[in-house]
Write a protein that binds this DNA or RNA. Structure first.
Lengths: 200, 200
DNA sequence: GTGCTATTTTGACGCCGTCAAGATTGAAGC
DNA sequence: GCTTCAATCTTGACGGCGTCAAAATAGCAC
């Protein structure tokens, strides 16, 4: 849509998000400066400020998009109470693939940049928490059948998500985990989570 | 040691590390600028460059110190093959306390700042890997007794460390985990890890 | 056409990491 | 004690960053 020689860009908001996504993927958050982004969009330094309050807001929007995709993954997660392993294994692999397909996006979604150093907007907070709520329900086997005296579903969800998340972080930051080990470790994680799923 | 009116500081190297630690704790990596650090040490902007090659090197030194402390924690970890739970629970709590006592340090030790965006020096790499190697040995129950047909010790160590690490990250970044939940979730994690410890 | 508003521009400020060149110091060799 | 030298510290400068203010431009309703 954007004509090369028009004063108004016409589609700057979406263009910014798209190009920011590319920049993020290729260079990480460190390489994503508003100035470079503006240049890439063929627009002056301060133009983005009419579409995003500041850099924090733009990063929030990027993270939001990530959570929306992640939500899709979680929606597909469903466990057979009689034999939860295949479903869980499928989800774990999908989650790891999601994280390693666009590591910088994953980092942005869960990292301190937004949640600690920055200010996560209400929209981001909502979708992020929504994801987790869906997950809690998905791994809540006791409601469907089986073990009535199981552990607190919230705790199970938190601990298992932590395992998943820790796996991703160790892998993506390149410490203690290498890509080749991923499959074996993820199987080990599935075993871990399964053990925690039934009962504490 | 540092006299107020001397041209040479006399103890700048250590002073820098100490003040950088304070700055890191209080303001996070974002608040740790070499210029501010220099000012705090009562010295000019570029003085630190005579003691650390660049900012990356200083951060590596900070992370190294963290790993040295962490190594101490791991050295105290020893599991009774007959009843590993108490020892493991003690370690998990100590680990979580370590991380939440100085969250920004923990973040620096394991985060992308050094391992992905930066250049982790050989000294840092060595101590970090040393920590993990010690951990692998500590949770390697099969050597001591019991289950001879257990899972691969390396995988067990990786998966359990991931759980621990993920717990810390979710907690420190303030997403999906709150401080009040910590105790309950850590117990849940212990249960998870125990399940994975014996066999896959 | 006339305004009005949204959009985009240039200019500027203060912060950052870091390089280069010069000043100052402490210590070793004589 | 004096000289020499390397270590240490200084000021000055450069380019990059996020972002604010003020001016320019475009699109649209009337």
């Amino acid at each position: 849509m954007p004509r090369p020689d028009r004063y108004h860009h016409g589609d700057l908001h979406d263009t910014l998000l798209r190009e920011a996504g590319v920049l993020l993927r290729e260079q990480g958050v460190e390489g994503l400066s508003l100035r470079r982004l503006a240049e890439r969009a063929g627009v002056s330094r301060t133009a983005p400020y009419h579409h995003f309050a500041d850099k924090n807001a733009l990063l929030c929007a990027l993270a939001e998009r990530g959570f929306q995709r992640l939500e899709g993954l979680i929606e597909e997660l469903s466990l057979d109470p009689a034999d939860p392993e295949p479903g869980l294994r499928r989800f774990v692999r999908a989650y790891l693939r999601f994280a390693s397909d666009d590591p910088e996006r994953y980092e942005l979604m869960f990292g301190r940049t937004l949640w600690k150093a920055g200010r996560p907007g209400p929209a981001l907070t909502r979708v992020a928490h929504g994801c987790f709520r869906r997950y809690v329900e998905a791994v809540r086997l006791d409601r469907l059948a089986a073990a009535p005296g199981g552990a607190d579903p919230l705790r199970v969800a938190q601990a298992s998500w932590a395992t998943l998340h820790g796996l991703c972080r160790l892998l993506l930051d390149g410490i203690y985990l290498r890509r080749e080990d991923m499959e074996a470790v993820s199987d080990q994680a599935v075993a871990l989570m399964l053990a925690g799923l039934g009962r504490a």
